[in-house]
Design a protein around this nucleic acid. Structure first.
Length: 149
DNA sequence: GCCAACGTTGGC
DNA sequence: GCCAACGTTGGC
């Protein structure tokens, strides 16, 4: 079962929001590499929920994919910040998945701690300049993060 | 708020 | 197809 990591700005959508809502649509991904990873997800896959662009960037918990990739409806909504004028119902390049809450870490694993972990050196998240917002996580990396929680 | 790094756009 | 300019990401 593949593992993933997805970034979200907690001001927009946080692990606490997911915990309260139980389930949510993960939409608004507008990068082809990230989108391709979304499309590779299967129902039941687990992912780390990462808080980006905030006071304490950190892996804040775990979610589960409950519906695999489908056309992202926000691309078709003119009032959405994720609206894409080039998208149509017939031809929508963007994908969304549905996710469910699994766990909120009592202590989020902060970016400095992730960077200090040798087992995570290959993870795009900790690599200089990487802005990838959806990425695969190997079983060894998954275990290394769980051990830091 | 700053700015480095990146991905995308568009002129040629 | 190249590449400069631009807009965005995201840590600090």
């Amino acid at each position: 079962m593949p593992y993933w990591l997805m970034k979200s700005e907690p001001d927009e959508f946080s692990i606490l929001d997911l915990e309260k809502q139980h389930q949510a649509r993960w939409d608004g991904v507008r990068n082809y590499q990230a989108r391709n990873f979304l499309r590779a997800m299967a129902e039941g896959d687990l992912f780390f929920f990462y808080h980006s662009s905030c006071a304490v960037p950190a892996i804040a918990g775990i979610g589960r994919i409950v519906r695999p990739a489908y056309a992202d409806p926000t691309a078709l909504q003119p009032d959405s910040p994720y609206f894409d004028a080039k998208a149509s119902a017939e031809k929508n390049a963007w994908s969304a998945v549905d996710v469910a809450f699994v766990e909120r870490f009592a202590t989020p694993v902060t970016l400095p701690r992730l960077k200090a972990e040798a087992a995570l050196a290959q993870l795009p998240l900790v690599q200089k300049g990487s802005r990838l917002s959806v990425m695969p996580v190997s079983p060894a990396e998954w275990a290394a993060v769980l051990a830091l929680r």
